[in-house]
Design a binder for these strands. Sequence first.
DNA 1: AAGGCTATTGTGCAAGTGTATAGTTACGCC
DNA 2: GGCGTAACTATACACTTGCACAATAGCCTT
Lengths: 208, 208
Amino acid sequence: MTGDRRKFRREGEERRREALIAAALELFAEGGAGAATVRAIADRAGVTPGLIRHYFTAKEDLVRAAYATVMNRMTAESETAATPADLDPASRVLAFVGVSLRPPVMDAERVGLWAGFLHEVRRDPEMRSIHEATYLAYRNQLQALIAALPGNADPVRARRLAIACNGVIDGLWMEGGMLPEAFAAGELEIIGLSAVRAILGLPAGKPT
Amino acid sequence: MTGDRRKFRREGEERRREALIAAALELFAEGGAGAATVRAIADRAGVTPGLIRHYFTAKEDLVRAAYATVMNRMTAESETAATPADLDPASRVLAFVGVSLRPPVMDAERVGLWAGFLHEVRRDPEMRSIHEATYLAYRNQLQALIAALPGNADPVRARRLAIACNGVIDGLWMEGGMLPEAFAAGELEIIGLSAVRAILGLPAGKPT
DNA sequence: AAGGCTATTGTGCAAGTGTATAGTTACGCC
DNA sequence: GGCGTAACTATACACTTGCACAATAGCCTT
């Protein structure tokens, strides 16, 4: 009588993994690492806690996979913003910067998500290397765009400029996400673009 | 016979509070929020867990006090770097920036400490207002220094420049702390100073 | 020197954590 | 259509967490 066991469907392995990762990301965004418990993740994914262990050898594995997912997604988004080949080099750099400083990339929830992972990155060497790889992938894209500008052929110079511009982006992105009400809509994008233009010596015009 | 109760000394209230906060900060820096358990904090402070409840009505109170402490300390450090009145305005701005981008302010442990708090800031409104207050205190100092530069009398302009420079500082500070081995010693300070000079339109010389 | 105030300790508890493992059921295959 | 596999569930366990509360002992006052 009492034996009503929960009904379930056998999803494909890929879909289940993605669903679990998505659930973990939601919880990380909402409540940080503390909220992303095995039970909460399973619940959010409409699944039983035990199943997590079926797909990931430990919770840590799931966390790492989730972090890699979110970082790669963000890098890909910025990349596509700067791909139109018909743009001149300066416009491509500015497009790359601009997309990072407005929604949906610059968003309180995303910053919260990233903040939730930050501590794990410092602690777990595996997470650290994921972080390093994705950070460098992002910065190298920026550096390639900068090197295409006139006068920036020297790789050492291009690297320094890329680090500086990346710093502007990261700093403003973080602050905008942590204190959204402290800035007017679109303000940080304007400020960021002006700063990057100044750093790169681009004219202060109003581009696309 | 078995009644060897632990010996203890009655410290002054101020000293105990500070000791507990210091212990909490150490643990936050080392292992993030997860490591700063009531028991671990008490242990580090050479005290029994119960005592924490005697000084703080809940653990959350201790965490808030610790965050306020560390943020105020960092702001104070940057402030004193820019106080020498014999410096010209430009040098004062650059001194303010420079001190934030080299040890002991830019330090992996400090960034880790800050990262450990980041998530709590997003969640707890009380922490949020502490964050906002300390962030604005820091940025307003920067803004005051910038407004003293020729041509920056307009508050709107000074505010924007302060936000931009603050973004550079925060971004580079964070990246330097997260991936120390990715940058040469002193590299980020040089890059940060160049970027700030470019943003503020200062000559590219090598100042004090 | 004694007494009292309170800072400090020790013990205990209910709730929540990750993980192990055995049992069950959905679904592809012949 | 039955069967085997593995995707999935359910239960249990050892451990940790924050917090409550009563007992104790260090220090100050007189």
